[in-house]
């Protein structure tokens, strides 16, 4: 990673140059060091599936995976993500067909306006991988970092339970 010179006298903004790996693609970027992963994904890479809900780490709408773990991309500086594997909603499913969890959200109506949905799905995928979808109460607890103001929670839980059940049956 290369950083530009920052000098308070000439008010030059510090820039970072590095490679971001998102959904298996490599992007060479030069960005303001203050830029969050969220803003770089949305404003620079055009990956607007990840949503800005609060920009304060309080709502979960911006949830993405970094090295397989869920993080809040609004609280993560883009420059921290060099050499790390970023997955966003655009990387879920195989392009032609949706991921079973996306289908389950659709079938169970686990969203209304849809704005928080990419974050909910990224959280739910991580939750399933973490083995934290064992019961409805467990899902509720571990999905509580993702606010849905439309109030689709009950259907979100049903969707996750369906996929967790299908995975369990497949084992």
């Amino acid at each position: 990673m290369a950083f530009g010179v920052s000098s308070p006298t000439d008010q030059q903004v510090s820039q970072a140059e590095f490679t971001l790996r998102v959904n298996g693609e490599e992007y060479a970027v030069r960005v303001d060091t203050r830029a969050t992963l969220l803003d770089v994904l949305r404003d620079r890479l055009g990956l607007t599936g990840t949503k800005k809900g609060c920009d304060q780490g309080a709502c979960g709408a911006c949830t993405v995976h970094v090295d397989g773990k869920r993080v809040l991309s609004c609280l993560t500086l883009a420059a921290q993500c060099q050499d790390r594997r970023v997955t966003t909603i655009e990387g879920v499913g195989d392009g032609a067909s949706p991921h079973p969890l996306q289908s389950a959200f659709l079938q169970h109506d686990g969203f209304q306006c849809g704005y928080c949905t990419p974050g909910q799905i990224m959280s739910a995928l991580a939750l399933l991988n973490e083995g934290r979808a064992g019961s409805a109460d467990e899902i509720r607890e571990y999905m509580s970092g993702n606010i849905c103001r439309c109030g689709a929670y009950q259907n979100i839980v049903s969707a996750i339970q369906q996929v967790a059940g299908d995975r369990g049956a497949a084992l």
Partner: peptide, 15 residues
Amino acid sequence: DRVEGPLKVAGRAPY
């Protein structure tokens, strides 16, 4: 199901 649902679960609905 919601007709625009496939766009929303894929993050492709343009807000």
